[in-house]
Design a protein around this nucleic acid. Structure first.
Lengths: 264, 264
DNA sequence: AAAATAATTCGATATTATCGATTGATTGTT
DNA sequence: AACAATCAATCGATAATATCGAATTATTTT
């Protein structure tokens, strides 16, 4: 499965290939040998070798000492964290997220949309032994998560329809909304209520409350969510969680306006 | 200040240049224009443009909407976090770090050596409003930090001497150890004690206790540290912190042995 | 010890990156 | 409002450079 080298603009072939190598390695569980990478990219080994040596010299790739297989390199960690540090939204959101997590003892996420999916930008993990939910930097579908629905709900109907047409509505559990019209209705509700509820739509037994964060222009750019097990989130406690999650999102919206805006 | 293109191995020029562009952008505070990048790399703008467009297509770089200046792209965040997730050490260390942070209400770091410097791999921040200390992914010198001294102390004398010769002993505060012999003595003490104390050597008023973590082969690969203000860390409380930090490091060493070892 | 599979090096070839000049778009100035 | 200046983006001729298959070296397996 080689990435197509669809050259829209004047791309530099070797750079394009080198970056694709990184993606191929990232998609593997535990690194790949040179031969495996060459096979997947449908390129001669020597070509891949030249590219990957250059990546290694810059620490974008490292070789396992045992065998010589290639893994992602430490420099990606450094650049990724440096980028994350530049986002004002994280600082703006941190205090409210901390408070929420501590108050309810649950896991709090901060996310944004990235290419039609939810991307987790930050996370305050609950102390509980099992943290079922996803990690920073992970992606998940928009139509079945608290953050995703909160983000999606504030788009125009046309945009939502387009999103559905492009990405589809994959069922992750039996509760996932898979019909377009049903999702439209649900999102209208989300918009009116001011919060989104994911009730086992992404994973059975997992409940999740999401609320939107507006940037200085009044556009929804981010959302937070609080996730926990259904057995812990119901009735009065759930009601209070909903209220507090919305409050927190509003606080973050405010904090974001105050600081200079350095968008993601 | 262009990076020299010292071609040791058969490097691919365009890839080498593209990666250097990322470094140049990362070194800037708030992104750079094409012209600025071209100037720093001593390359024609059109050359840089081709390379950087390719980086942009892969989301390793993004362009600010306002002006067209170039910033690091979201994909670096995704790759960096994916890499971080693959490190067993983080999972192994997390519980003990959490406990330490909660017990003392201070900030706990996990770090390793990377190219003669301490690289922070993880952090549990104290709830306190001001978090003075560094962030995940940041680097700092080895000779004046708790983690750094713990790591350095368990190398051979020859290696330590070489480290000093290569990197020097820059004084960050008036308390920083800047004489080689003095540092050798200090590290011997660290080795004997089993912990390292940074007493305002990196920043006035900041105290920090570090302890080494051994991998399955008995080599020191990581270290943790607890940092706080001098006014909070002294006397009985400091004594107890030292004991608990060492305990935590031992626990992590043990946890690391149990799991399969996926080194950084 | 031999066979097999890995990464790495080599050198001829023409594909492809490079570079200066030009264009187009945007911002700031008089 | 027109001009000047500055920026990114485009173009096309040129030769420098990435590419590729074959050969080599290193490591592991039988």
């Amino acid at each position: 499965m080689a990435k197509s080298n669809s050259n829209k603009t004047g791309k530099i072939q070797s750079v394009d290939r080198a970056l694709t190598i990184l993606e191929v390695i990232a998609d593997s569980d535990d690194g790949l040998t040179l031969a495996q990478i060459a096979e997947r990219m449908e390129l001669p080994k020597s070509t891949v070798h030249g590219l990957i040596s250059t990546l290694r010299d810059h620490k974008y790739v490292k070789q396992a000492e045992e065998d010589g297989r290639y893994l992602l390199g430490i420099h990606l960690f450094e650049l990724g964290t440096r980028l994350a540090r530049s986002w004002d939204i994280r600082d703006a959101a941190k205090p409210a997220m901390r408070w929420l997590s501590k108050e309810f003892g649950e896991t709090v996420h901060l996310g944004c949309e990235e290419n039609g999916e939810v991307l987790y930008l930050d996370k305050i993990a609950a102390d509980s032994l099992v943290t079922i939910v996803s990690d920073i930097g992970a992606r998940l579908p928009m139509h079945c998560s608290g953050i995703g629905k909160a983000l999606l709900a504030h788009k125009s109907d046309a945009e939502i329809r387009r999103h559905i047409a492009n990405l589809g509505l994959a069922p992750l559990t039996g509760r996932t909304i898979t019909k377009a019209d049903e999702l439209m209705k649900e999102l209208e509700k989300v918009r009116e209520q001011g919060f989104a509820l994911d009730d086992g739509e992404i994973m059975e037994g997992l409940r999740c409350v999401g609320a939107p964060i507006f940037d200085a222009d009044g556009i929804v750019r981010y959302a937070i969510s609080v996730s926990g097990q259904v057995k812990d989130l119901y009735g009065k406690r759930l009601e209070r969680l909903i209220i507090e999650t919305q409050k927190a999102a509003k606080e973050i919206t405010y904090a974001l306006k105050k600081g200079r805006v350095q968008s993601k």
